[in-house]
Design a binder for these strands. Structure first.
Length: 207
DNA sequence: AATTGGGGCAACCGCCAGTCC
DNA sequence: GGGACTGGCGGTTGCCCCAAT
């Protein structure tokens, strides 16, 4: 018997709830989040518990302001990966995908002069979401990202195995940005090459 | 002092993929 | 094989705080 969604509490977490969640994780580990409301008095659904743990309670999570180094790393990673926040966060020690996403949207976009393109058109829908996962590297909101020459070059080397980044500059949207160092992605730059994925895995982004 | 508007961030929502039974 | 369950992801929302008026 599962609780109806509306039986679960929503909104900000209290200290008491945090304690309960921490205790659950200490005893049961980070799994079976949906069982929490059954074995504890916590009236939160599994997803909410998982999110709270991942984004706030996990001891590995770093709180506080982002350093310049982190900013730089995120910008580089975003240039390479687009809005794949979990991948980006995986390479920024102590930061979660939610933190990175928020930081990007609230600080870095402004700093880089990127106007946030709210996409009502979510990634194409069901049919080829699995494809999307890999090919989505260049979501619309990042079509105007900056790309440092060094990272561009590294990426291009790998891409050389399959498709290439040739013509990237030509795809710039009518020269919106006058800075010649700015390059643009668009949907033609895809991450569907296994080589490229390996590249990202082994890529030392701290330059 | 009270109000208001914007920024920042935590949390929710909807979707998908993998796993279990 | 297929339905239910669970976890993970990215986009979006809504609340809180604070500065400006």
């Amino acid at each position: 018997m599962t609780k109806a969604e509306n039986e679960y509490k929503k909104g900000l977490w209290t200290e008491e709830e945090d304690k309960i969640l921490l205790e659950y994780v200490r005893v049961h580990g980070r799994r079976h989040w949906n069982r929490i409301s059954k074995v504890t008095c916590l009236e939160r659904n599994g997803k909410s518990c998982r999110l709270r743990w991942m984004n706030y309670l996990c001891p590995n999570v770093k709180h506080g302001e982002f350093s310049e180094e982190e900013d730089d790393l995120i910008i580089r990673l975003h240039n390479l990966l687009g809005n794949r926040w979990s991948l980006i966060a995986g390479r920024v020690p102590g930061r979660t995908d939610n933190q990175v996403k928020n930081h990007w949207n609230t600080h870095l976009c402004k700093r880089l002069g990127i106007t946030k393109q709210t996409r009502k058109h979510r990634v194409p829908s069901k049919s080829n979401r699995s494809d999307v996962k890999r090919t989505e590297a260049v979501p619309s909101s990042s079509t105007c990202g900056t790309l440092s020459p060094s990272s561009y070059q590294k990426g291009a080397e790998v891409q050389g195995q399959g498709s290439s980044l040739n013509g990237l500059e030509a795809q710039c949207e009518g020269g919106k940005h006058s800075d010649p160092s700015l390059l643009f992605y668009d949907q033609s730059f895809v991450l569907d090459s296994p080589h490229l994925m390996e590249f990202f895995d082994g890529f030392d982004l701290i330059m």
